[in-house]
């Protein structure tokens, strides 16, 4: 299991990296942490002819809070940097919590925030979480830069809005409103495996304790992070009763995901799990929002 030959470039600046990507187009792959890309190269499932290694570019690893309570995370920030960051814990507790569920310690020391987003594995946590948190990403190329919302960034399996000459430079996670709560529920064969099913719920209550806003996003539930917008919409304005939560979970699992059969679980089992986990996630998120936990 050795990778096929390729040309390797390790530019020291973003401009050089973007020029290389522009030059080589679809032939080139950007290398960040490599924890997903290199296994596929070792299996020869992926054989890029050019690798542009981003690891020598300064300034791409940072965790920066904004005055408005938002958080910016640089693309080359390693998972374990987020995992051990007090700033991340304060500004994006859901992201911070999820880090321990991503693979293993020795993978989190190399794997990067931006790499995971750009890889767009629908079973991974970060794409779903950034979607649930209304995150957006700064994409840069020799042509300039643009911001793309997570909702629009993830297109399908391993496919994003990134053009071949573009790089994801950083992610921005907006602040959660007051009286917010969050939850991430997963069922995995082993704790560190990709989840059979997972769901992130982010909710906010109004002053009367009714649901002011809800976002429900599933992972391992389709070709991209699956956002259950109708179920979330139905919760808005309602008191988060057990009944309302059960109805939202059932409807989300029945109508707003598209899980597939694979060797670890059938679509039917995954739908069942989606219902269970969504219910549990909403319960926990609303409890947190109400300051109960």
């Amino acid at each position: 299991m050795k990778p096929a030959p390729f040309e390797y470039y390790a530019p020291a600046t973003m401009d050089e990296a973007l020029a290389l990507l522009a030059e080589h187009g679809y032939e080139a792959k950007a290398l960040a942490g490599g924890q997903s890309l290199i296994p596929m190269m070792n299996f020869r499932l992926v054989q890029p002819s050019v690798l542009v290694d981003l690891n020598n570019i300064g300034g791409l690893a940072h965790i920066t809070p904004g005055a408005d309570g938002s958080l910016r995370i640089g693309a080359l920030t390693r998972h374990n940097q987020v995992e051990t960051s007090a700033v991340a814990e304060q500004y994006a507790p859901l992201i911070h919590f999820a880090m321990q569920k991503i693979a293993y310690p020795a993978v989190r020391t190399r794997g990067t925030f931006g790499g995971s987003l750009a890889h767009a594995d629908p079973s991974a946590e970060l794409p779903a979480l950034c979607t649930a948190l209304n995150g957006r990403f700064r994409l840069v190329s020799g042509r300039g830069e643009r911001w793309v919302s997570a909702d629009e960034f993830f297109i399908s399996l391993f496919t994003t809005a990134l053009e071949p000459d573009e790089l994801l430079a950083e992610a921005e996670i907006p602040a959660m409103p007051p009286r917010s709560g969050w939850s991430l529920m997963e069922t995995a064969r082993r704790p560190h495996d990709f989840a059979l099913m997972g769901v992130a719920a982010v909710v906010a209550l109004d002053e009367q304790g009714r649901c002011a806003d809800a976002r429900i996003v599933f992972l391992s539930a389709g070709e991209k992070p699956m956002s259950a917008q109708k179920a979330a919409e139905a919760l808005r304005g309602q008191s988060p009763s057990a009944e309302a939560i059960r109805a939202a979970a059932e409807s989300a699992a029945a109508n707003e995901i598209d899980p597939a059969d694979d060797i670890h679980g059938t679509a039917k089992f995954r739908r069942h799990l989606a219902n269970v986990l969504c219910r549990r996630a909403l319960e926990q998120a609303f409890q947190r929002a109400a300051g109960k936990k």
């Binding site: 064969r189 082993r190 704790p191 060797i263």
Partner: peptide, 28 residues
């Protein structure tokens, strides 16, 4: 509960990697 070799109808092994063939790890 974890380790099963999945062959498809053509006799292809579907989980020929440690990502999909699940050995028990320290947490289980």
């Amino acid at each position: 509960y974890y380790e099963k070799l999945h062959y498809d109808e053509n006799g292809q092994l579907l989980n020929a990697s440690f990502a999909d063939y699940l050995l028990v790890s320290s947490t289980e």
